[in-house]
């Protein structure tokens, strides 16, 4: 057992560490953990689970550039293979092979279960949300900072997010996502921390549907690499030429 005094001392250090930074800076630290740099690629497995039912699985390869540009390639199942989802700023297009025509969609349109296009295509929060520091709370024995993120634009996927990050290393632990109406839509837990590209990063995000109990989705990140994808790839008209 850790002596109480040592524990309090650690909390104090952690608190000082957090207090030295503004909420926006804390959010940037969280983003740096979730996104390894400005330009990278990763594979994503999305599993939708519901009590008593067979899991539904989708797989993607995601290329990210400059935080606000993402290209999502659908790789599984067979009927979605070859589809592309492009997000540039708040603009989003879906490209269905064989039509050569990107179709504009809204970020609200869903992929599977509670996972929206924005959840897959956007891996940082600081671009879309303003941060405000709330109280400190403990989650699973960890002292956490609670941040309130409010949407900067109407195009942000959520109206408000409550985010709990470790007070010492800013590793995100939990998030609650709210609609503009204020309704709690889903709760996410950041899990599976492992050393990837020089930092401990969460490779699993477990998302519970708060509107429908018993439903949850798991996002598993793998093969994260720092790769510089050409800027041209992130243009709607380029999609039909992607190899």
């Amino acid at each position: 057992m850790m002596p109480k005094a040592v524990f309090l001392f650690l909390i104090l250090i952690a608190s000082n560490n957090a207090l030295a930074l503004s909420p926006e800076e804390i959010l940037k630290k969280v983003d740096q953990i979730r996104a390894p740099g400005n330009t990278f690629v990763f594979d994503l497995k999305l599993t939708y689970k519901k009590d008593g039912e067979k899991d539904a699985i989708q797989r993607f390869t995601v290329q990210v550039k400059d935080a606000d540009k993402s290209l999502v390639r659908f790789t599984y199942p067979a009927n979605n293979k070859g589809r592309l989802l492009l997000m540039v700023g708040n603009n989003m297009w879906i490209y269905i092979p064989d039509t050569k025509k990107p179709i504009r969609i809204s970020p609200q349109q869903r992929l599977l279960g509670q996972i929206s296009n924005g959840d897959v295509a956007r891996v940082v929060y600081s671009l879309d949300y303003n941060a405000k520091l709330l109280e400190k709370e403990r989650i699973d024995e960890r002292q956490c900072i609670k941040l309130e993120l409010t949407a900067r634009t109407k195009e942000a996927t959520y109206g408000r997010i409550l985010l709990w990050t470790d007070a010492e290393d800013f590793e995100p632990q939990k998030a609650e996502f709210y609609a503009l109406s204020g309704k709690l839509l889903k709760t996410a837990l950041y899990k599976g921390y492992a050393n990837v590209l020089g930092k401990r990063r969460p490779l699993i995000m477990e998302i519970r549907n708060e509107l429908c109990k018993g439903e949850y989705s798991i996002m598993e990140y793998s093969n994260m690499k720092a790769v510089d994808t050409p800027k041209a790839f992130f243009q709607a008209d380029y999609l039909k030429h992607i190899r």
Binding site: N91, M92, R104, S106, P107, Q108, K154, E155, A156
Partner: peptide, 12 residues
Amino acid sequence: ISGIVGNNTELH
């Protein structure tokens, strides 16, 4: 011409 308005609406 096409664009989005807010998080839910697409207009064209």
